[in-house]
Computed example of a mutant assay.
Amino acid sequence: MQDTPITPELKAFLISIGSVSVDPSLIPRARGSTAGPGAGTSSVFFRSGEKRVRLSVSKNSPLSIEAAEEDRTVTLLHEGRELARGKLEPAPAHCPEQAFITLCERCIFDCKYCPVPKLQGHIKNEEEVLNIVDDVLRAGTLKAISLTSGVEDSIEGEVERVLKLLPILKKYDVPIGVSVYPTEGCSRKFYDAGVVEVKYNVETMDREIFQKVCGDLSLEYILDRLKEAVEIFGKNRVFSNFIIGLGESDTSVREGVETLAKIGVIPVLRPVNPHPLRSGDCFTERPSPERLLKLAKMEAEILRKYGLDTSLAMTMCLKCTGCDLVPFVDF
């Protein structure tokens, strides 16, 4: 049986749930060929036709993925009713077709929705990073390298961590994207070192909410660095995660998207992912399918107004599209 097209409405519904139970026999398909940061059973990528969606694995999800009769195909169901047929995409390093690597899994900042400060995880050295990229290369799926990082000691230290890696990563001859907390002047350094795209996250454009959930950071400072980045990288090469589900109004989202688009930045509207380690630390609510569709269509209208196009992305989240409803790609 042929793949079933993932419509914008279906993807919005799947993202609003955000999880899926998976037949254990199918997990090796989703793992790919490595034990990189995206391997294992924490999430899977379901692809049908040219569209994909990423879902975390949960035994209690109303969504399920089961093997279909046809070789290598799977069926996606909601409470036993078939929604779509497609395949599980290998994600050797966080997402398909990229080596998407978190360099530092720790953070000194305490954004109230984020589990990273509580987890205080691993910090990868150069050898580990190269091993991950080599594994994706051997799997035959390396089309981009994307680097992100928490903050171990200082934002300056994380920028330097990335800059030290860039010369050796250029040998792979694929686009490189970087997403870190920025320093003044770092965009010029990244660009000169061969980076093609950057993502500096505003998290939310509602200033009152920002102060409550990211009080250690400065929204104005991030906006200044985004403006600086657009001057260097140009339009369609600078992105920013914009979390949906922290209590913001649709009006504030529209105003925030317009503010970013006006300076040449493409917002990535990212549904909040409530984490048990941050339970009660701040308001979080997974957005409904209807709200996701409404906001994505609103974003498309604004991006069109300012001549921005998500489909031109070469790295990171907008190239993957698994977690978000992406204008001009998903609809």
Rank of each mutant, 00 (worst) to 15 (best):
P5C: 07
P8I: 07
E9N: 06
E9P: 00
I17E: 13
I17F: 06
S21W: 04
P28L: 08
A30Q: 02
S33F: 06
S33R: 11
T34L: 09
A35L: 13
A35Y: 04
A35N: 14
G40R: 10
S42Y: 09
S42C: 00
R47T: 13
G49I: 12
G49C: 10
K51C: 02
N60Y: 11
S61N: 10
A67Q: 14
A68Q: 04
R72M: 08
R72K: 14
L76V: 08
A84H: 06
A84F: 03
R85L: 07
G86H: 08
K87S: 12
A91Y: 01
P92R: 02
H94Q: 11
C95Q: 04
C95E: 09
P96T: 07
E97K: 07
F100M: 07
E105C: 00
R106A: 14
C114M: 08
P115M: 09
P117K: 11
L119P: 00
Q120H: 11
Q120E: 15
H122R: 15
K124S: 12
E128T: 10
E128P: 04
D135T: 01
D135E: 14
G140I: 10
L142E: 03
L142V: 03
K143L: 10
K143Q: 15
S146V: 02
T148A: 02
V151Q: 01
E152Y: 06
I155F: 00
E160N: 12
E160C: 00
R161C: 01
R161N: 11
K164E: 11
K170I: 05
K170L: 14
K171W: 00
D173E: 15
G177Q: 10
V178M: 05
S179M: 13
V180E: 00
V180L: 15
P182I: 07
S187D: 06
R188A: 14
Y191R: 15
D192A: 13
D192T: 11
V195D: 09
E197W: 03
Y200S: 03
E203D: 15
T204L: 01
E208M: 04
L223G: 00
K227N: 13
K227Q: 14
V230G: 06
F233G: 08
F233Y: 15
F233T: 10
S240H: 08
S240W: 05
N241L: 08
T251K: 13
T251E: 15
S252Q: 09
E255N: 11
G256L: 02
G256E: 01
E258T: 12
L260C: 05
G264H: 07
V265D: 03
V272P: 03
N273F: 11
P274E: 10
G280M: 12
C282H: 09
F283K: 14
E285M: 14
S288M: 06
S288D: 11
P289S: 09
E290Y: 04
L292M: 14
L295M: 06
L295P: 01
K297W: 12
E299N: 04
L303S: 04
R304F: 03
K305A: 05
K305D: 02
D309Y: 10
T310L: 01
T310G: 00
A313R: 02
L318W: 00
T321K: 10
G322S: 05
L325Q: 02
L325C: 03
F328D: 13
